[in-house]
Simulated scan of single mutants.
Amino acid sequence: MHRVALQWIVGLLDERNIPFLIVGGLAAKGYGSERDLNDIDLFVPGEHFLSVVQAGQAFVSKAAAHRREEGWDLTYVQFTYEGVKVEVGSAEGPRILDAGKQAWIPLEIDVSRQETRQLLGMALPLMLKEDLIRYKAALSRPVDIEDIRAMRGST
């Protein structure tokens, strides 16, 4: 079902020429992680965020808002498509909780810093491996540690 949800969100973005960056577990899969996906996480530039929200309105499961939860401080919307959660964040000012320092730090999202990889039958723009490892190391949740180990073991 992740493939169907991914095709839906990528189609929605491509139709509108909106650049995006795949992050989280799906990006980690592109670099060698084999754990099951919980959801699909991606960012779009801040100026495109509201048009994404409007375009996917029929599938909103968590309204677009600024939230601080589970180590994240950002503006995002959650869609549910065919039972799969798709979370789209605004690249404008997201922060993450650095578990080691117990402090909020900026999460730099630059859609031009990407690597295209084939995943779930699609060519996707993934956050660069070193950027992904850096943010997952700061969060240091069990899933992040698992992803880092897998990514470091692959090319």
Rank of each mutant, 00 (worst) to 15 (best):
I40E: 00
D39A: 14
R149I: 10
P142W: 05
V111I: 06
E82F: 08
V84R: 05
R16F: 06
L139G: 04
G30L: 09
P106V: 10
L97R: 15
E92V: 03
G11D: 10
F59N: 12
P94Y: 01
L97N: 04
E108M: 03
L26Q: 07
E108N: 09
E69W: 09
I96K: 07
Q102S: 13
E115N: 08
I133K: 08
W104H: 06
A55T: 01
V86P: 00
H66V: 07
P125L: 03
T116L: 06
I22N: 02
L50I: 04
Q57Y: 04
D144G: 00
A58M: 07
H48V: 03
A150S: 11
A123P: 07
Y135H: 13
G83Q: 11
V111T: 14
R67Y: 15
L97T: 08
E115Q: 14
L128T: 05
A137D: 14
I18G: 00
S112M: 09
R117V: 11
A103N: 10
Q118C: 06
A137Q: 15
G25K: 13
L128P: 09
V88F: 07
Y135N: 15
P94D: 11
Y76C: 08
L126F: 12
R113S: 10
E15Y: 06
G32D: 11
S154G: 05
I18A: 01
L74E: 14
Q114N: 15
E82P: 02
K85E: 12
H2F: 15
E115D: 10
E82D: 14
L42V: 01
G46Y: 00
Y135P: 05
W104T: 12
I148Y: 06
L139W: 05
V60S: 04
R68T: 15
L50F: 13
H2M: 14
K62Y: 13
A138Y: 11
I96S: 09
V111S: 01
K136D: 10
Q7D: 13
S112W: 13
V52P: 00
R67Q: 11
S140Q: 13
G11K: 02
E34T: 14
D73M: 07
R134K: 06
R16M: 10
R68I: 12
P19L: 00
R141E: 12
L124R: 06
S51G: 02
P106C: 06
A137S: 15
V53R: 00
V88E: 01
G93A: 15
T80F: 06
A63P: 10
I9S: 00
R113V: 05
A58I: 04
A27I: 09
E108T: 13
W8K: 03
S140A: 13
V53S: 00
Q54V: 11
E92H: 06
W72S: 08
M1I: 07
I96M: 08
D39I: 12
F43K: 02
L120M: 14
D98Y: 05
G56N: 11
L13P: 03
M151K: 04
P94A: 09
E92W: 01
G83I: 02
S33Q: 05
V86H: 02
W8N: 03
I133Y: 00
T155F: 13
R35N: 05
